[in-house]
């Protein structure tokens, strides 16, 4: 059974990584809708998928936050990817598979996944 004492090793490892990462690059933010509509549509699974993917890709500098209902309940789960200096991009009808692609293409490589954005949805 795991014990909280194991956090000491994680802390030590991250201390070393942090010194390597101090290149002044400001952080990308990911914001997930967590109102009743978002939760009912699966936002919790999306949060989990984002965290797992960030850990897997060692993206410790990306921050994850929540927001309320933005009035587009039918498009939940929704998340915004906010890269500093660029317009926020809103992704809708998310699934864990879409999250993986968005983190790889957009967060890591800077290419917006147009087909999953709210703009693409509204054009349909």
């Amino acid at each position: 059974m795991k014990s909280l004492a194991e956090l000491a090793a994680i802390k030590e490892k991250m201390k070393q990584n942090a010194t390597m990462r101090e290149d002044g690059k400001s952080a990308t933010r990911i914001v997930v809708g967590m109102a009743t509509c978002g939760i009912a549509a699966g936002a919790r699974t999306i949060i989990n998928a984002v965290t797992a993917e960030l850990a897997k890709k060692d993206l410790e500098h990306v921050t994850l936050a929540q927001t309320g209902c933005i009035g587009m309940c039918r498009l939940e789960p929704i998340m915004d990817v906010i890269v500093p200096g660029q317009d926020p991009v809103t992704y809708v009808h998310l699934t864990p598979e879409k999250v993986t692609k968005i983190i790889n293409d957009h967060v890591i490589n800077g290419n917006i996944v147009q087909e999953y954005t709210i703009g693409a949805y509204e054009d349909k």
Binding site: M1, K2, E6, L7, K11, M14, T51, A52, L54, A55
Partner: peptide
């Protein structure tokens, strides 16, 4: 048990806590 670099929302801490809570 944590620090500024390893906070409650650092992905590797989150992954550990998920396993910890789930196991218990």
């Amino acid at each position: 048990l944590l620090s500024e670099n390893a906070s409650l929302n650092s992905p590797s801490v989150v992954v550990f806590l998920t396993e910890y809570v789930n196991e218990h």
